[in-house]
Amino acid sequence: MTTAQDRAGLLDELGLDAQNKAALGQVLGTGTIGQATERADGRMEATIRIRPDEISWDPSILVMPHGGDIELELINDDLNTHCALLPSNGDRKFIWLVNHSRGRAKLNLDGPGYYWFSSPTGNDEGRGLTGAIVVLGDVPPEARLDRPDQPRP
């Protein structure tokens, strides 16, 4: 029986967090986690990489402290071509990432909640190039229900 504390070790031991070990690809949600940096003006920034032969985003879970604008640097260090389809209000953002390339993306996201992003080519999405952007925070006060605070799970 495994407990949550064993998670990282067991993922590695079983080979769930790498290509062509336990499964064919890297199981989604087993990658790295990173936090966006907030600038003085409230805009956020982060760098997301694809490392050689990992077919996975690093970080594969990016956490934004709140909703708003974020600028991403997207780096493909892999020896194969990938791309990125990213959530953003207005339209999804697409960028082609040839081998050893670096690009940028400007996103606008509401919080709270999380959004998937991926490389929509071949089956990059199934092999591991599906990541999540998590937006923390609450809705504005004026959007909250007029009622006493309620219990949460």
């Binding site: 997207l74 780096i75 493909n76 990125a84 389809l85 990213l86 207005g90 339209d91 999804r92 953002k93 697409f94 960028i95 082609w96 990432l97 040839v98 081998n99 050893h100 390339s101 670096r102 690009g103 940028r104 993306a105 400007k106």
Partner: peptide, 17 residues
């Protein structure tokens, strides 16, 4: 060090429709 290829900035997916 090999310079990265400049992939530019991500565009609206609708521009590819």
């Amino acid at each position: 060090t090999v310079e990265y290829v400049d992939a530019g900035e991500a565009i609206d997916q609708g521009n590819l429709s």
